[in-house]
């Protein structure tokens, strides 16, 4: 497959139009079928049907924004981690962030802490704190001879993740009655996402994405090798540390809203590289937009595939994304991969 080399601005505009189309389709779909005209009047605040207006403005729209923002965060984190570790399989979950979050949530559920703080469930806040703590632990364990080692961090991430997941399994064993709720949460989803949560995560995620996109030249350099990056004047240690903290924050904010959604951080960056090439100057922002669109589409499918109820979005990301990914992979030139 030949890469698309048009101006980044035009590509981004095209992706934005695609996102608008997907968002509009998503707003019309669901248990209550709504026409485009009704959606537009609800968005303009001119709908006479208050229940329809509530469905559009307070149920579907926050969900669309949430899926988009979380998709952006996960895809950007995946792109950054793969460049940082020069490993196509790296994504933020390998840093132990997701298993940390899962443990935090599981502990909260077992202890029955359902009270709120600032309008947010204490359980979500525990997930957030555990996610950051697990990442910090991996970063400190991954130091070899005083320096952050890629192999050390990847291995520490895998070991810490396995360890934390074992603790979760132990919690399952001793708390049969709560297995269903914990398990469902770990599958991820946007059911019941409120504007309060969206407001909290959107700004930090957008700042994080912009920050990482401003580091595009550094990502290009470090992909060529750490010695190479240091040779052109990069502070490699500082860059690695900052990137890991920012990506962990992005993932922690995502987990806070949607639980654990796998696959986006792996599939979207690779997909965008295969289509648009490897240069991070365009890749970071294009990945963010691609991640937003991908997760929005998956979330819409997750709530309309079944007549009754919905399926966890993590299942849709894999079912829908894997075949598409493999199709593109077979047609991609080696230099458009990491």
């Amino acid at each position: 497959m030949k890469k698309i080399t048009g101006k980044t601005g035009y590509i981004m505009l095209a992706l934005f139009v695609l996102w608008l189309l997907c968002a509009m389709v998503s707003l019309t779909m669901g248990a209550a079928q709504v026409t485009v005209k009704e959606v537009v009047s609800a968005l303009m605040g001119q709908s006479s049907d208050s229940s329809l207006s509530t469905i559009i403005m307070d149920v579907r729209l926050p969900r669309i924004v949430g899926a988009t923002v979380v998709g952006m965060a996960l895809a950007t984190s995946g792109t950054s981690m793969q460049a940082l570790f020069r490993n196509p399989m790296a994504d933020p979950f390998i840093l132990g962030t997701s298993s940390g979050a899962a443990l935090g949530i599981a502990v909260g559920m077992v202890l029955g802490i359902y009270s709120g703080m600032l309008g947010f469930g204490l359980i979500s806040i525990m997930g957030f704190i555990f996610a950051i703590a697990a990442t910090m632990l991996v970063m400190s364990l991954g130091r070899i001879s005083g320096r952050m080692s890629n192999t050390g961090i990847l291995l520490s991430g895998i070991v810490v993740s396995s360890f934390l997941l074992s603790i979760i399994s132990l919690l399952y064993v001793f708390n049969h009655d709560k297995i269903a709720s914990i398990y469902l949460w770990t599958m991820g989803g946007f059911n019941g996402v409120s504007w309060d949560k969206i407001q909290l995560i959107t700004l930090p995620i957008i700042i994080g994405v912009i920050f990482l996109s401003l580091k595009a030249r550094e990502f290009n350099a470090i992909t060529l090798g750490e010695d190479y990056a240091a040779g052109i004047g990069m502070n490699v240690e500082g860059f690695k540390k900052t990137t890991m903290i920012v990506t962990a924050m992005l993932v922690a904010f995502s987990v806070f809203v949607s639980g654990i959604i796998g696959f986006v951080g792996i599939i979207v960056p690779h997909l965008m590289r295969m289509i648009f090439g490897v240069d991070h100057k365009r890749m970071i922002l294009l990945s963010a937009m691609g991640g937003g669109i991908f997760l929005l589409v998956c979330d819409t499918l997750s709530r309309v595939i079944l007549q009754s109820g919905e399926i966890p979005v993590g299942i849709v990301t894999s079912l829908f994304g894997a075949p598409f990914f493999l199709l593109i992979l077979r047609r991609t030139k080696p230099e458009n991969m990491l």
């Binding site: 992909t223 060529l224 090798g225 190479y228 052109i232 004047g233 990069m234 080696p334 230099e335």
Partner: peptide
């Protein structure tokens, strides 16, 4: 870091030539 790279450049024996820039 940048100041030093304005004084000393290095041509490495190995760089990831497969990166498609």
């Amino acid at each position: 870091h940048r100041e030093l790279a304005r004084e000393v450049a290095i041509v490495h024996q190995h760089a990831n030539a497969n990166f498609g820039l």
